[in-house]
């Protein structure tokens, strides 16, 4: 197998990010969701931490539960960007010139995967940072801060979030290469990641801030992401992308 030429991948990534940055249609939803979810998680956590919540959640459980909601970001954000990445090249008729460059299928796939993944994971990491800083400001004593499940939060932010992001990106790309237009690609990809969203919420609530439970969940997500990657790679041929959906 030919080694990946990273400067070419970087150029493709740079181009995609530049296009995202210049498109209000793509940019606004990208920021609205993290702001909304992080703000909501922080406000709800502050209520729980100050004893204003009526559902009897402990500060520690509330901290973890609302942190888990931020895992929706690496699932949803790649769909917003990834589902349109290839199909937009098709509808804008830029795909053929791109495919006529010496980029290999693998380089194209990696470049197109990184473009939704990088902003999605950056925004997720930023949201976790804001949430953590906010939580520190809300919790009143050092003892309470020390009792918060920081290990679970780190595991969610640095293991589960990237794995979920990868899984969501591969689903979005697989759909994007076959779709005829952007809207249908986003709708189909959203439908396909719904089970992942439900799993994130369900498992998060069931497992709680249990490190072993979280690790097992991460392993499961990793295995599914790998399987989806295999399917995406096997279907990612320039010949089929060019012909599909036209």
């Amino acid at each position: 197998m030919r080694p990946i030429r990273w400067p070419l991948v970087k150029e493709l990534l740079h181009k995609d990010l530049e296009e995202i940055a210049r498109s209000r249609q793509l940019l606004y939803p990208l920021f609205v969701l993290p702001v909304f979810l992080t703000g909501d998680a922080l406000v709800t956590f502050s209520f729980a931490a100050n004893g204003l919540s009526n559902n009897g959640l402990s500060t520690s459980t509330a901290f973890f539960t609302f942190a888990e909601f931020l895992l929706l970001l690496p699932v949803i954000l790649p769909i917003l960007l990834g589902a349109s990445s290839v199909v937009l090249e098709k509808t804008n008729r830029t795909l053929e010139p791109l495919l006529s460059t010496p980029l290999t299928d693998t380089e194209l796939l990696v470049g197109k995967s990184l473009a939704p993944l990088v902003p999605a994971l950056s925004l997720t990491a930023a949201s976790y940072l804001v949430y953590s800083l906010g939580a520190l400001a809300v919790v009143d004593s050092r003892e309470s801060v020390a009792n918060l499940p920081w290990g679970s939060l780190l595991l969610a932010a640095f293991l589960l979030a990237p794995l979920l992001g990868l899984l969501s990106t591969f689903v979005a790309l697989a759909v994007s290469t076959k779709a005829k237009e952007v809207r249908s690609a986003q709708q189909i990809a959203t439908l396909l990641v719904l089970p992942i969203l439900l799993a994130v919420i369900g498992v998060g609530l069931a497992v709680g801030p249990n490190l072993v439970g979280q690790l097992v969940f991460a392993l499961g997500i990793g295995a599914i992401a790998y399987a989806v990657l295999q399917v995406t790679v096997s279907r990612f041929h320039r010949d089929q992308i060019l012909v599909a959906g036209v």
């Binding site: 210049r22 804008n92 008729r93 053929e96 006529s100």
Partner: peptide, 15 residues
């Protein structure tokens, strides 16, 4: 080895 001009110019219009 080939320089291709496809049927549609296919430019990145925002760039």
């Amino acid at each position: 080895q080939i320089g291709l001009l496809p049927e549609a110019a296919g430019l990145y219009e925002s760039l």
